[in-house]
Design a protein around this nucleic acid. Sequence first.
RNA 1: UGGGGUAUCGCCAAGCGGUAAGGCCGCGGCUUUUGGUGCCGCUAUUCGGGGGUUCGAAUCCCUCUACCCCAUCCA
Length: 751
Amino acid sequence: MSEHKDFLRTIVEKDLKSGKYKNIITRFPPEPNGFPHIGHAKSIAINFGIARDYNGYCNLRMDDTNPTTEDTRYVEALKDAVEWLGFKWEGDVRYTSDYFEKLYDWAVELVKMGKAYVDSLDEETMREYRGTVTESGRRSEYAKRSVEENLDLLERMKNGEFKDGAHVLRAKIDMSAPNMKMRDPLLYRIRHAHHYRAGDKWAIYPMYDFGHCLSDYIEGVTHSICTLEFENNRDIYDWVLDTLKLEPPRPYQHEFARLGINYTVMSKRKLLELVNEKRVSGWDDPRLPTIAGFRRRGYTPESILNFCDQIGIAKANSTVDFSQLEFCIRDDLNTKVPRVMCVLDPLKVTIENYEGSEELDAPYYPDDVPKEGARKVPFSKEIYIEREDFSENPPEGYYRLTLTQAVRLKHAYIITCKEIKKDRNGNITEIIAEYNPESKSGQDTSGIKVKSAIQWVDAVSAKKVEVRLYDRLYSCENPQSIEDLNPDSLKIIKNALIEPAVITEKPDVRFQFEREGYFYADPIDYTDANPVFNKIVGLKDSWGKKEKQQKPLTTRRTQPKKVQIEGETEPMSEHEQALFNKYTTELKLNSMVAEILARDNKLSSFYEDTLSANNSPITIANLVANEVARELKEKEIDELQFNPAQIAELVKILDNGTISNKIAKEVFEEMVKSGENPTQIVEAKGLIQISDTSVIEPIIDEIIAKNPDNVEKFRAGNTNLLGFFVGQVLKATDGKANPKVVNELVAQKLK
RNA sequence: UGGGGUAUCGCCAAGCGGUAAGGCCGCGGCUUUUGGUGCCGCUAUUCGGGGGUUCGAAUCCCUCUACCCCAUCCA
């Protein structure tokens, strides 16, 4: 766990500390109606991760309340995903469908309480009745049905006596609730459908809002973590649990932002479309952000988990750079997999002065990877190198083989180019080269320095392999439709050449093809006769990048600062205007403060009451407009712990210098909580301000002596540090030192 | 538009009145038989805008703006 906790862990810790819960129970509750993707991985990492971090446990629950879309194959995929990521759910897999009986009993209970009713409006009418976001809805006439009638109807719904859509069970909440979700939400609907687990037993199925909170409760879940789009549903979550008066403790819902990654799509609908329209080869197509896709591509669970860790958890909608994911898989594989040589686009090289053959020793791992292992690499007169590693007209900074530039064959000899052979069209078909017998890798006495070492394979022993080069699925950052698909997301190379050990020894399933990238033996299509490798990710390529980037770097510094349009504030009413005028002219308040007070009649009346007890208009105004305003945001005046007379008193001791502004805030906080008198608080806590320089000075000297680095930085021009020193002094005096005095003194001493 | 959210570097993201963390990307340099890795530097005088309170504001107050979610018998 990193040292900075995310907001969910902060909540969990607080709940543990306060004793709200003894143990933490979370759950990962997917609906089995689609294949899990990396967004699910984030949720899995959060839910299982929190349970692990706080010694609790996490359930895996299929939220299977909609029989028409769900299927066992998805259940399997979901279980598989969790396991692959290395997590264990508590006990057996749970299913909301296992709770149907209990859920139904609770529904009956709500009906008995008069909190739920059977509605028989048709779908369209119901929609009309719901109103809109700006207009309130109205309640169906059926809401007037008696408890007995509702009970009877509900039972018959359950028994399958009615057709789909004939009736629904709704919670009786508030048809004019500003939160649309609270306008008598549906609890049950009739569905004469076969459920993949419950079979044909049920003719009615619970809705998400009814089933989810209660399933959490049944399982003893403490923190029900879901994504942002359920924020509006939280009110129902609470309503159901509270209305049923269930025995505590009960779960609470918390929401985080779902994962978005650029150059790909994450919605079930769009993913399904890609698969159904055969734009990809299936759910496990290595270009897809599905768990199965990543797995087939060769990503490791560690890399995915690491990614989830790196991106953090917050409430702001965001889109993570694909490069972050690429970093994670490279970072993981770098220390794990063997390096081997594979030539994707072969160019024949004949080494004129070499005769016979030999087997060269080559370690699988570079020096900086602490792993053992080596293989033999056959070498002879005819070899293949990567076409890109030779250039007849090299650009500036080219390190590889040229007419005049020698290069090392990795693990072998240094060669120089003698002659180029071309076909009729001018394409290079072969290079005639010469090797230096003194330059053998590991026993080089030639003294030749080369700019680079390139990969190669021996012509006679190399094996032919198929290599599938995958790139981002879409060509734009924020793809909208299939038109944004990247036409080059898959390139298949049928005739790549690989050194024999990879095929014969099979030292691993993942490899780094030296200087190319990381590759994975395809778990499905790979056969000994036709080996297939998937490209997981390329190596970082600062040369390739430099080559492409010919266009001048646009100076991004001078971005157009976008002008922000100021909206109009509603004009003040006549009464407010009059107050405002009085405040600014008679009482000399600044116009901002005057406006805050004038526009809010709770504030203005509180202000005037305070003023009548202490004639200090400006200080009181500032206090009321800034501090009292915060308390009055969601409360009425008579709900406050403190009263105007106490504020008047606070202002008095503030005005006469007994306490500083900083202390005044502290005292105010205390008044908010306890309602005690300010003078008492000041006395009890000994908060009287220290303005005596002879007391303060030695403290400053001490702080300065303790922080020589910061003194230096300050003197070098970092004047922000003044705040640091003042803060330190204030901390040392428990906030009692007069900050103005401290400020002056510190500034003086640091000069 | 009523309600609920969110705004800190190109992308994520800490920060909760006292020195603007960290990661990715990018840019330099060193190391390197991978133009990889590793290491070392650099990259926000400023926190969506404007005001206010304060010795001191990303943090508190006011206000404006932008974006996301909600009117499925989906979850």
